[in-house]
């Protein structure tokens, strides 16, 4: 196989996979518009995506805020600009680190779980069983997961923003002896509503990516236990890569 053939094959696989995600997204969107919508399943998935992810998200946000404050202090101290720590922490958290880090955490936890769960159902013929019981597998399995991921991601990001900013506050005030009032004042002074909204838009978009990629990988899984493992790995890797790549384009679109 020569180089051109290899490139052609990889491109074909890439486009086929992209097409598969687009089909899942399209079919899911179509199903959202009609009933049954399985509110009980959506709630159960929202609990799985949102509530169960909280410990991981809180810990990540807290330490990210703390590290940001510490790193900013080291630099700003040279210019006697320590009062700007709050600005760096809050803007970084709200605009970028909140949505991206929460996205990566949720992709690792929830995307993997979606792929593994649906993949196991596929190889054990449970998805086929749903069809024979006159139940649309895509509506029953994928739609609630995608909705839950889209809705819960922004909520997790709001919490993560607050916790991250608090982490920075705690380090600045209790460790670096900064004035708490100045920290809070600078935090709000430089932040615009758009910064906050942009983070939420990103979070919703990342939620959609995690849901669609995780579910597609699991739903189309082949080859027994090994296939489930492969689908799970692919779901996490592709979700994380997609989050990082799409973050650039979303930022360029919203702030460019």
């Amino acid at each position: 196989m020569n180089m051109l053939q290899k490139i052609g094959m990889i491109s074909e696989q890439f486009l086929a996979q992209l097409g598969l995600y687009a089909i899942t997204l399209g079919k899911t969107s179509k199903r959202i518009l009609s009933s049954p919508r399985y509110p009980r399943l959506i709630l159960a998935q929202a609990e799985e995506v949102g509530v169960q992810s909280l410990p991981v998200v809180l810990l990540t946000a807290l330490f990210t805020g703390m590290v940001l404050a510490l790193q900013s202090y080291i630099v700003f101290h040279r210019f006697a600009a320590e009062s700007m720590i709050g600005v760096v922490v809050s803007l970084s958290m709200v605009r970028e680190l909140g949505p991206v880090l929460v996205g990566l955490m949720v992709a690792g936890r929830v995307g993997a779980s979606f792929a593994a769960e649906l993949g196991t159902m596929r190889v054990s013929e449970q998805i086929d069983a749903l069809w024979t019981l006159s139940t649309d597998p895509m509506r029953y399995l994928i739609m609630p997961r995608v909705i839950a991921a889209i809705v819960m991601m922004p909520l997790l990001v709001v919490i993560s923003d607050f916790i991250g900013i608090y982490g920075g506050y705690a380090i600045s005030v209790f460790m670096l002896d900064q004035n708490p009032a100045v920290y809070l004042e600078k935090t709000t002074q430089f932040m615009e509503l758009k910064d906050f909204y942009s983070g939420l838009v990103k979070a919703g978009f990342f939620g959609m990516l995690i849901g669609v990629i995780g579910c597609t990988e699991g739903f189309n899984c082949k080859g027994g236990a090994e296939g489930v493992g492969r689908a799970t790995t692919r779901a996490v890797v592709i979700s994380c890569m997609s989050i990082l790549v799409s973050d650039y384009f979303l930022t360029a679109w919203m702030f460019g």
Partner: peptide
Amino acid sequence: HLDRMRRVGMLFQGAALFD
């Protein structure tokens, strides 16, 4: 097709019960 599945029952080789 899904609607026609109401008339059908299927026993799978591995039972395929929902865990």
